[in-house]
Amino acid sequence: MSEKSCIVMDKVSYTVGGRSILRDFDLRLEQGENRTILGVSGVGKTTILKLILGLLKPSSGAIFIDGIDISGLSEKTLTQTRKKMAIVFQGGALFDSMTVGENVGYRLLEEGELSEAEIEAIVHEKLGFVGLEKAIDLYPAELSGGMKKRAAIARSLAADPEYIFFDEPTTGLDPIGVYNIQQLMIRLQGEGKTTLVVTHDMNTAFAVSNRFSFIHEARLVFEGSREELQLSAIASVREFFTPGEESLFRYVEAEGDHETER
């Protein structure tokens, strides 16, 4: 399980308050791959991203980032591993006390390896990539939902990470906003970035991914290509694509808020 240049989740379980969010979950994300994890809302998709980022500790199992098991690492060592990764959170999670430009340059400023002029140049470049140069001095509260997501993408790109994770990147956006985000993701993939998307938006999933995983009741029940997914005979997968009477008002326990170990 110690191969380089990939993310591996090996029999990862995550339990909170006696409730199982993930059970023996396996995932292997090769470099350059564009994977989408699908599943109904509240099934634990975001938890997977937080586990990979080391924001949550698995109850059992191991998570390898480029061959390093991060499940037992200290916060200080994790910071080094996180340099390879970036995430675009569902709501953008932009720091609302900072301008868009400051948000984008935040990580570079924290690292303290570049001069202010170099950081400014990178900020302009990344904001140009997402078409938000004119918003550089605006605060997050002054942006629309789509602009917030684009600013968050620009922030995630600032330190040139190898892996980019997207948590419900198109939720709550209008069709133009959705198209913009999809195109940005495709452009990133064109630059060789490895992306892992969690979403329940099939349109986005098919537009930006070539491989799919499906979670149902805390377990991975499917892994394969688009064609295999669409032809799958697994009941939960079929129901996800063509919900029927049996899906009506079913009670699904949400993954909810987990207490993050800090």
Binding site: K50, L53, L55, E75, T79, R82, K83, M85, A86, I87, F89, Q90, G91, A93, L94, F95, D96, Y106, R107, E110, E111, R155, D257, T260, R262
Partner: peptide
Amino acid sequence: VVTEQVDAMQVEGTDI
């Protein structure tokens, strides 16, 4: 915390 800004800060390499 609820808007995930603290998580974002940690991912960006900040000692919160």
